[in-house]
Design a protein around this nucleic acid. Structure first.
Lengths: 346, 346
DNA sequence: CCGAGGTTTTAAAGCGCTTCAAACGCGAGT
DNA sequence: ACTCGCGTTTGAAGCGCTTTAAAACCTCGG
């Protein structure tokens, strides 16, 4: 539209065009009450005609409140991307905006968080951060903080500031997987672990408890030595299983990526899935949904997680809650695809 | 550090603490020349002690130039993430900062670009945008624009504003793949196409020309009907190949994801790779690098692309170039992994 | 002891927008 | 006619930082 050669259109330009004060224009453009219907129409028209676009920096600076929520994600994770999208929507619905900052090889969590703080965020949402509890508690003292998909363990002293926590019941997730397999008739169900980290802990714990509850012998394949939750772990696990020549009829993996590694190694060795071995993953990664993978997996309610996170933020910011609310724990769900079936009728 | 209960520390607070003017503090903090060594030290110390963090919005607003480059990416693409990281570094080295905006399901290219414009970006870099040439040309009239990995075809009229273009020679990429396979002794080399789009066009063209140059009969498997460049295309292609019972000894895929689909479908049907069929992908996706995939693939010089893009931006912004420079075309390179081998000797 | 010439420091004017108290009309009430 | 209240508009004071022109200070040679 504006094929003008010069400067960018400012609020004042619009005001001048219409013949009202900048104040009125500002009110109209933000839908604030006050201006009459006629003024509204004229301002809106002029703004449109001139191709006016408000300057975010200026607006941000002038506003008393920024209504900005900072989100820390790892841009490489599809799960994070998914949550981010839902957060975006949920925040918008509550009149907030999202600023996101991603961690990269050359940019750790701390730096990314600093960026967010510098951007006038009123609250922070961190998805599965690695930072130690002490650091998180310290941060929570500075700014309302929500931890997504990460327990706070061990909890900081009762007098220490404490972030809100929204997460999935990961214990229940692996239990769900065991349930499903047991329901199909499996009894020899192994588990591929995902390394340290609270999430991996919970999932393993859930598996162990579910097995115990059914009187089944657990079998955990260690997941250390490689980056947590990667394909490599799955490959190693498959190799270990094959070497021992003692295949279970089903395997639950910590993670979809790990499950995919497992799947691939099994295929290479001519082990039919789900004919000979059933496999269940965790995360409902796009990877799992890929047509040729069709991995049965445990999914998390990303929309729900996002919604709760925003609610927690709003409760602190708009409500009067100064303290963290109770931990919010959502239930995972099982998506059955093509990698699970009853054990071979021997 | 700052366990203070109150407001955030401002520039003035630091100034007051040290006993100098805010102006001096500003100068010191930005490393501008002027302040004496002693003042520097005292200011730095105070800033540190008070835990001062400059407010980006305010700083941005006050600065004459924003020195901000807007980057449009699709957060789901690992390739984009990779480029973004290099761009970050390259920009920083030139004294620029990156603002990134991602396209999502509910947020098209246009909206994402608007966000960038609202953020005071002085220039925009778009990675493989879908927008039509006319729209891009229009945008280029508003702000210096760099197109990454996307030809401008057909070129807008000579009098129309024109973005800079930095891309990989995709024709050369598939030619490289054909070279490699032919060098190994393959002559029956098929190609799995990737749908419409300039990139897919170039790659197909490169394949066809390379085959023709060697007097080999081309064989293109169509890639339409499904989202461009996905696993599904590869699976369909494999099925088509198997149905015809006329397997080539090698296949070049438009894309790594497509190649992976192909690989998987072949494995399911007991076709050994690379024993019976060699496969080459394109993109050097993390997917391809996964240990159990080991896909031979054509890679792009992401660091180079990023560097050129930033150079183009700087040339327009700091240099005096008002017009777009010549199109920059970088050479792709081949990474040989485990999916290619000489054809079965027979 | 003065002023030139250089180095440091600072006052003050914004950047483009929001906000809030105050001003302004205008018909109703007295 | 005069005040009151109400819906609408606006002047002006910032938001926290940068920047520039000018002031203040210093060192020296004359």
């Amino acid at each position: 539209m504006a094929g003008n050669g010069g400067r960018r259109v400012r609020l004042d330009d619009v005001a001048a065009e219409v013949g009202v004060s900048p104040a009125s224009v500002s009110l109209v453009l933000r839908g604030a009450p006050g201006p009459s219907a006629e003024t509204r129409a004229r301002v809106l028209d002029a703004a449109q005609r001139l191709g006016y676009r408000p300057d975010r920096a200026a607006s941000l600076l002038a506003r008393r409140r920024s209504r900005l929520i900072g989100l820390l994600i790892d841009v490489r994770s599809p799960f994070h991307a998914d949550v981010a999208e839902h957060l975006q929507d949920a925040a918008e619905a509550r009149g907030y905006d999202l600023v996101l900052s991603t961690i990269t090889r050359s940019r750790g969590e701390d730096r990314a968080v600093e960026t967010l703080l510098d951007s006038r965020c009123e609250a922070l949402v961190l998805i599965g951060p690695d930072a130690p509890v002490a650091r998180l508690s310290e941060l929570a003292a500075t700014v309302p903080l929500v931890l997504l998909c990460r327990r706070l363990d061990p909890p900081p002293g009762a007098d220490r500031p404490r972030p809100d926590v929204v997460r999935t019941a990961d214990e229940a997730g692996t239990a769900l997987a065991v349930d499903h397999l047991h329901g199909l008739g499996h009894t020899a169900i192994a588990y591929v672990d995902g390394g340290p980290g609270t999430v991996a802990q919970d999932r393993r714990e859930g598996y162990l408890r579910a097995m115990a509850a059914r009187g089944l012998p657990p079998r955990v394949l260690p997941g250390h030595g490689t980056p947590s939750g990667t394909e490599t772990i799955g490959i190693r696990a498959a190799e270990a299983l094959l070497a021992e020549d003692d295949l279970p009829t089903a395997v639950v993996a910590f993670n979809d990526r790990t499950a995919v590694g497992l799947l691939d190694a099994l295929a290479r060795n001519g082990i039919d899935v789900p004919g000979r071995v059933s496999v269940v993953g965790y995360d409902d990664d796009p990877l799992a949904r890929m047509a040729h993978v069709g991995l049965t997996t445990v999914g998390q309610d990303t929309a729900g997680l996002a919604g709760r996170a925003v609610e927690a933020v709003v409760a602190r910011l708009d409500g009067d809650r100064a303290e963290a609310g109770p931990e919010q724990v959502l239930e995972p769900y099982l998506t059955v695809r093509r990698t699970t079936a009853p054990p071979r009728s021997s």
